[in-house]
Computed example of a mutant assay.
Amino acid sequence: MPENLHKVKQEIYKNIFKYANGGIAIVGLNGNWIKVNDSIVNFLGYSKEELYEINFQKITHRDDLNLDLGLMDQLLKGEIDNYQIEKRYFHKKGHIIWALLSVSLVRNIDGTPLYFISQLTDISSQKSSSWHLQFLMNVIKGQNEKLKDFAHIATHDLRTHIGNLNSITEFLEEELPDIVKSENYQMLHESISNLNENLKNLTKIQVDKPKKFNALAKLSLYNYVKNAMYNISSIAKKENCQIINNVKQDIYIFGIEAYLDSIVLNFLTNAIKYRTEHQPPIIELTTSEKNEYIVLHIKDNGKGINLEENKARLFTLNGTFHNHQDSRGVGLYITKNHIESIGGKIEVESQVGKGTCFSVYFLKA
């Protein structure tokens, strides 16, 4: 009976070694391969006969070899019972593969070391994904640095130009006192004032410290719509565009001043930009309430968007869907990011030739 039990145990060990999903190897004290299973062969690309002629040091990446040998030495000295490391091997074809290596030591009855049991798990794909993610993070970090530099330069230069424009309007008022009665001059003066206010809002944004929801300001949606309409009043007048503001004056949302300026302004200018040629553009702004949101609806009668073809890339960077000379595929991408950064979301309905309605969800104040 004991002999039969021993045979059963031997058969079990043999089957575990042979059919294990991961790589299992018996490695000699000098690093030579004594016995390997098929998973090791598939992983490293060498046949069993080829592996038995070499040791693991020969196919280990040199940057990982000292760590592995040092831990093996600790095992032999009895300082540790086992160890696990991420390690690089050279495949027979020459490329690098990554393994999660687990090693334990088998000793004789008298305590003398016999051999190592090594288990190898292929983690090359996980490492590849990790490197790809790190690469993207480095790209994003670089872009953020460029964006911060651009923001500093842009606000500085804009401040200079606004100062010059203010000086010019003062000179004009001194030389031509009656000019202040001109509607166009009043529009120019008010636009410069609004531009200066927008610049002040931009400087409040700390680009290296993202805003938390509890730091958002309570803002009058009506006032921001009204200001945006005034800022593009000359464009609307030129294109014979009618903008209808049905936003109620008592509606308040949570947001960031500069972001809300940009959001409303972008939707209005887009509606005018993508107007049809056969009818004057009409833009209507309304609101509704939905759970914790105030929803701003911006509806136009423009060209419309084929959502079946373009919905997936509607808010992507460089995603354009109209052959307009000013289309860059940036505005909606930035706008969507602004909306989501203040806890909102955006939906769109559109029909080609009939117009588009963007629904922007803001947190209700």
Score class of each variant (00 low, 15 high):
200 K>G: 05
18 K>P: 01
57 Q>D: 11
41 V>W: 02
241 C>S: 10
354 K>I: 03
229 M>P: 01
234 S>D: 05
9 K>C: 02
308 E>G: 04
312 A>T: 08
247 V>G: 07
332 L>I: 04
157 D>C: 03
219 L>S: 00
172 L>Y: 01
149 D>T: 07
187 M>H: 05
324 H>N: 12
276 T>R: 14
174 E>M: 07
169 T>N: 13
105 L>D: 00
87 K>W: 10
280 P>E: 15
22 G>K: 08
221 L>I: 05
45 G>A: 11
139 V>F: 06
30 N>R: 09
80 I>Y: 14
118 S>I: 07
82 N>V: 03
254 F>R: 06
156 H>M: 11
76 L>K: 12
347 E>Q: 15
131 W>Q: 14
282 I>H: 11
93 K>T: 15
328 R>Y: 09
24 I>Y: 14
198 N>A: 08
223 N>T: 11
136 L>S: 04
29 L>V: 03
60 T>G: 03
279 Q>A: 04
72 M>S: 14
118 S>W: 10
231 N>V: 01
297 H>V: 04
301 N>W: 11
21 N>D: 12
71 L>F: 11
86 E>K: 14
267 F>Q: 13
178 D>Q: 10
345 K>F: 13
156 H>W: 10
213 F>D: 04
237 K>Q: 09
194 N>Q: 11
58 K>V: 07
74 Q>F: 08
210 P>T: 05
260 L>E: 01
347 E>P: 03
183 E>T: 09
161 H>T: 14
282 I>W: 03
182 S>P: 08
62 R>T: 09
204 K>P: 01
43 F>P: 00
209 K>W: 01
137 M>S: 06
62 R>H: 09
308 E>R: 12
223 N>F: 02
300 D>A: 05
107 R>N: 15
77 K>W: 06
236 A>R: 02
132 H>G: 00
348 V>Q: 04
42 N>T: 08
149 D>I: 09
45 G>I: 07
133 L>C: 01
345 K>D: 11
278 H>G: 02
362 F>Y: 13
14 K>W: 09
150 F>V: 06
171 F>K: 09
290 K>W: 10
44 L>H: 01
118 S>Q: 05
24 I>E: 02
292 E>L: 10
323 N>V: 07
272 I>E: 03
249 Q>T: 11
286 T>R: 13
99 A>T: 06
290 K>T: 06
282 I>T: 12
352 V>C: 05
214 N>M: 03
236 A>G: 08
109 I>E: 12
57 Q>H: 10
57 Q>F: 13
99 A>K: 02
103 V>E: 02
159 R>S: 15
98 W>M: 03
72 M>W: 07
50 E>G: 03
158 L>S: 10
